[in-house]
Design a protein around this nucleic acid. Structure first.
Length: 229
DNA sequence: AACCAGGACGTGA
DNA sequence: TCACGTCATGGT
């Protein structure tokens, strides 16, 4: 099935490099979170930690909202795990409030940070990440792919919505069925290249979905339908 | 002004 | 396992 690579090629030409994962201090002067066609991130521990927290904060929430929370955290120098754990709980909730679900997310972030500190010298195993309260399959894969550069494919609701519309998957397909579709239809050997590819692919799918998959009446306008014929 | 956003958890069946 | 309710702010 060459559909997987056909989709990628089309999206890349259509939208260009997306520069994920967005980071608050990439281009400080322009206040731009993105770094298109530069996969050399994270550059340090703070950036890695910021990505992990961002993965939790963006659960079922627009990135615009998350940006506000990220800025709040950054202004208070909270991308250091020990400092975050010692920070006042109610103040922390206030900083995270713009991200929505702020009570849960504050708890999730604290739980994750404890895990993060306890395992900082080891490699984060996916199964262990999933034991952390607030870290599900997508969040775990996002962290592994963007913060730890592991070749995992991130499946979000947009991904399934697109594949359903293109009749590439079925309604009853679960997370891992869809993930396998991508993992098994890529012939890139080099791990580094594979990571870059998966990072870009997921970002492109999100970009594309924002254009054609917010309202149902737009689904049929998706140019990918014709591309795959 | 309703509707939804780069999900995950807890519950009951 | 699985369907369903819940969590919540900010943008369109």
């Amino acid at each position: 099935m060459k559909k997987v690579s056909k989709i990628y090629n089309f999206l890349l030409v259509e939208y260009g490099y997306q520069g994920w994962w967005p980071l608050s201090d990439v281009y400080r002067k322009t206040n731009n979170f993105y770094h298109p066609n530069n996969y050399n991130f994270p550059k340090n521990k703070k950036q890695r930690f910021e990505i992990c927290l961002g993965c939790i904060l963006t659960q079922n929430t627009s990135w615009k909202n998350v940006e506000i929370g990220i800025k709040n955290l950054k202004e208070n120098k909270l991308f250091k795990s020990r400092r975050l754990l010692n920070y006042d709980l109610e103040k922390l909730k206030e900083l995270i409030k713009p991200c929505g679900y702020y009570n849960q997310k504050t708890e999730y972030i604290i739980e994750f940070t404890k895990f993060y500190m306890a395992n900082r010298r080891k490699d984060f195993a996916r199964e262990n990440l999933l034991k952390v309260k607030g870290v599900g399959p997508e969040t775990a894969d996002s962290m592994l792919l963007y913060a730890f550069k592991k070749p995992n494919f991130v499946v979000d609701t947009y991904t399934k919505r697109i594949l359903l519309n293109l009749k590439i998957c079925k309604e009853e397909d679960d997370y891992y069925t869809i993930q396998r579709l991508f993992l098994e239809n890529i012939n890139i050997e080099n791990i580094k290249e594979k990571v870059n590819y998966f990072q870009e692919y997921h970002a492109l799918l999100v970009r594309h979905a924002k254009k054609y998959y917010r309202r149902k009446e737009d689904y049929k306008k998706d140019p990918l339908i014709n591309i795959l014929k």
